[in-house]
Amino acid sequence: MKIVKDLYVGESAKKEKRKILRGLEKKELQPFVYVITLPLGRHGVLDILPAFTLKYPFFFTGDPGQLKIVGIAKGRDEAFGLTARIAMDTYNATGGFNVREFLED
């Protein structure tokens, strides 16, 4: 699991950013925390996952070690809002929705 340098962080998640990141590292069961990741497969733009699913490797078809976390949010609604923000930023910057290229660049 990797976390991008310019991580998107939701408003509520900001208050607990350090705790959430520590929890992700230790694979703790963090209720209400969501991560936004680049999809492991070739398809899709972004994935929204409850953070605790990172503990369950069987959940993923690829290697969860390769997961790239691009955003963290507290609560489902915030996760959706943050995802929309990432998509809009990508569009505004590149005119398209290649989020992977935008974030990795």
Partner: peptide
Amino acid sequence: DFTHIEFLEG
């Protein structure tokens, strides 16, 4: 399910 805590809260 664990996720239902948040669902129920909603």
